[in-house]
Design a protein around this nucleic acid. Structure first.
Lengths: 129, 129
DNA sequence: GACCTTTTTAGACAAAGTCTAGAAATCAAC
DNA sequence: GTTGATTTCTAGACTTTGTCTAAAAAGGTC
């Protein structure tokens, strides 16, 4: 894990390594609050500011991506390969969808003076009645 | 405008009519804070709680839709026909994209016990360097 | 007009995230 | 190992967006 952080240009401090170990244990989506709770129950005390700073740094270095589906928080996604999401608005659960399973072709021309950064497809679902 | 609110099952109080007039003047995307500022500069004093309550009610009655592209706020979109968005992460600007301009076919099977609510396509762009 | 229900108000409150100044850790050079 | 510069962390204060609350005001029905 230390090598992975170094390779991404991130200094592997103890706190960052601990956070990374939790995040990259498996493909998953965690909010900052969840990361904070887990790292503080499983490892040493890490401050809230450090968690937020670290998650933001990891995102900017491409180690994870931010998923914005809920107006109250950001989900941090350890799977950085191209994919989309189901979002269950009732349970708050995010589920990965292979980008190939969503047939998305022919994007429209971009607005003047801009370049593409990402294409997010969010399939919002609710519990069946 | 009053008839439009009534048709949607919304009691047309003065505050709701004023907010509707601002929102439905044209197709646009406004945050709650923007609506609050505009209604209070152009019309009478409307409380923040009323603005939020009203926007939420309009959304639940299908008069507008909520666009979630930014983790810090909700955009309220007066265009309820099927469409997607460009979102400029530098300027915070939202631009409508016709749903036909995005070729989206063959959604994957939904998670067990759920039904589709919406499909959001957000093309995130940045300013060109 | 009376009465009941809904809506609004304005400030308090909550939650997610950001800021700050000082302490601690890291890094590079010697 | 020491020194000094830089980066990172801390913990609480602070900010922003949105929600709650109790009382007043407005709306609707009879």
């Amino acid at each position: 894990m230390i090598a992975r952080l170094k390779q991404a240009g991130v200094t592997p401090t103890q706190q960052r390594v601990e956070i990374a170990q939790i995040l990259f244990a498996k493909p998953q989506h965690l909010s900052a609050e969840q990361v904070l709770a887990i790292v503080n129950s499983e490892s040493s005390l890490v401050s809230k500011a450090t968690v937020y700073n670290t998650l933001g740094l990891f995102a900017s270095k491409g180690l994870l991506s931010e998923v914005i589906v809920d107006p109250t928080k950001v989900f941090y996604d350890s799977n950085t390969s191209s994919h989309h999401h189901f979002y269950n608005v009732d349970s708050g659960e995010l589920i990965d969808v292979d980008s190939e399973a969503v047939n998305l072709s022919n994007l429209p021309p971009l607005p003047e003076g801009t370049e593409a950064e990402a294409v997010d497809v969010i399939i919002r679902v609710r519990q069946s009645s």
